[in-house]
Write a protein that binds this DNA or RNA. Structure first.
Lengths: 106, 106
DNA sequence: ACGATATTCAACCAATTGGTTGACGTTTCC
DNA sequence: GGAAACGTCAACCAATTGGTTGAATATCGT
């Protein structure tokens, strides 16, 4: 039910990745330019970008030899909606909830 | 600057832990009762509760032989605020940002 | 065609994570 | 005082994560 949410929150748990998202707020960027301010290898940044892409937080489009990274706000909105909705959930039918968990945690 | 955010998002990345938070919305619960619907050991749930506590998402108070778990919404609000504020950040001074990263990623 | 640029891939490594089991310390109840 | 209930601790395990380096693959400019 919520594997997407798993990936979104896991992606957001890393400060480097949050910093990358902040940078992409400004504008779309090439991988090399994303990597420039960080003190780690390009390959490491490339991996971080893969994680963000898998989570749906960014998209990457290759034009020529440069791969452009673009913020995708929908996934963020989904996670944000989970949090917002959190306080508004009503009473839980515990039997149904247990059945739900059995399905989800399979 | 944002180690707390790291822990909050990492804690939220696990479906078992999100389910626990949902259960605690309903009411404060003892560790044993939290564990009951899940198909895993009590020790595993105990670890999950430690992670949630470390992230500040819940608090635990021992009364007698039972340890009560209580939702702490402030940490959630902090993460939610990060997301909300995300879309509202202005232009970034890239030199300052780089300096900021240098400090933060130490 | 060649050299430089942009990016990923593959192999590796240390540290962390999510789970298990069994032993252990407390508190309660009879 | 002794058994049962509550919960954690310690040791272990397999899988994942976040990083490295070096080689490989495209693409571009001349």
């Amino acid at each position: 039910m919520t594997p997407a949410l798993d990936h979104v929150f896991a992606a957001l748990a890393d400060p480097t990745r949050r910093a990358i998202l902040s940078m992409l707020l400004e504008d779309d960027m090439a991988v090399t330019d994303v990597a420039e301010p960080f003190e780690m290898s390009l390959a490491a940044i490339s991996k971080h970008l893969s994680v963000l892409t898998a989570a749906g937080l960014i998209s990457q489009e290759k034009r020529g030899r440069v791969k452009w990274c673009k913020l995708e706000p929908d996934a963020l909105r989904e996670a944000s909606a989970w949090m917002q909705g959190f306080g508004q959930m009503g009473s839980i039918d515990l039997d149904a909830f247990e059945a739900f968990l059995a399905r989800e945690l399979d």
